[in-house]
Design a protein around this nucleic acid. Structure first.
Lengths: 194, 194
DNA sequence: ATTATCTATAGATCTATAGATAATGC
DNA sequence: ATTATCTATAGATCTATAGATAATGC
């Protein structure tokens, strides 16, 4: 039983990380506090020294999940084409618990607390700005609106690809939406090597 | 206590209709059998004369919800522009329990039973075909792929508009994605009057 | 002395079933 | 006789709290 203050901070973070993964996989209501604690190597009694309520964990886990994601599919790609191909890949589809929470939890968030929805919206707008920054040079019109279209297509296509049980249809959704988006927003030559 | 066989059929349908609404609103796991029965004017004991398990109700309710929807936003519109405007409207956003279950339950479905997912996928493909049939004359390329892009954008934008707590941002998502889709797939003159 | 953790449990739920009741339908 | 409904409840959960234990930190 180690319980220094340093241990507590580590423990807190470990609980949040477990929750950030599990919530994406099974939904914000799909796992109990006791099971989260067990997966973090603890028992349920310690939970309320770290969080005032289960919902406080949901809020923190939502933020953590969004921060996870911010450094992969949307941020770390050199151009829009790569972003589209990465986001709408079978790898991302099969990595629910490590993938984009904006997609995995969009329905859950609509039914959740104001605090959770506020975190979700804030992180969504940050990701949207990143996507807007990836729009090809020379794209005309409302760039933020176009980024919203792309992000909406991301969320819908990824969600559908996970919902349908037929793997052929699932792949078709990812590939078709990916191809259509790439055709609509062609990356310029200078950006390809960027 | 009326319980003729005709009554039973009506009762069965009433339970399914209540579930089809509530599931869209609170998720497939968000309401108990007892509360569904209460809302249908019954008590929990009668439930298992109508369904072998809770999951059987989920399957039937999913089908019923999709049938509801099939005759409104996607089917009953004369052209694609009207379909886009209707689907991505504040009215649809605020009518979760009567709106499109393909959007409202996409995350829930990914976590649900094979039977539920099969019904979802079947109805999705039917709606997709309707949308494909609404593509403007002279649209070139892979029509099914383009319909998948539109439907994905529908699901993502509607989901986002319900998840974010800021009503201004919510409206912006609907209006921007709607405008971008209409610009991408302009309806021809002959179709406008169709 | 304080506190991070543990075990144990109160009180509220949830699915599913058992058994009683009252209506249908042969 | 059958059965659609009811009330009641078994058994399994879930959130949150109480009280004991063992380590930290003044």
């Amino acid at each position: 039983m180690g319980h220094s203050q340093a241990d507590k901070a580590e423990t807190h973070e470990r609980i949040v990380e477990v929750a950030a993964r599990r919530f994406r996989e099974v939904g914000l209501d799909g796992i109990s506090v006791a099971d989260i604690m067990k997966e973090a190597g603890l028992t349920v009694g310690a939970f309320y020294k770290h969080f005032a309520s289960r919902d406080d964990l949901v809020v923190e886990a939502m933020a953590a999940a969004c921060d996870d994601m911010a450094h992969s599919a949307l941020t770390a790609q050199p151009n829009l084409k790569k972003s589209i191909q990465t986001y709408l890949s079978e790898k991302h589809r099969d990595d629910i618990d490590g993938g984009c929470p904006i997609a995995a939890l969009v329905n859950d968030t609509a039914r959740s607390s104001d605090n959770t929805r506020a975190v979700y919206a804030q992180r969504f707008e940050e990701s949207l700005a990143l996507l807007e920054g990836q729009m090809p040079e020379g794209t005309t019109g409302n760039l933020r609106a176009k980024a919203m279209l792309i992000y909406s297509a991301y969320i819908g296509a990824l969600g559908l690809s996970r919902a349908v049980p037929d793997s052929k249809l699932s792949r078709q959704i990812l590939n078709n939406v990916s191809a259509e988006l790439i055709a609509l927003f062609p990356t310029t030559k200078s950006e390809k090597s960027a």
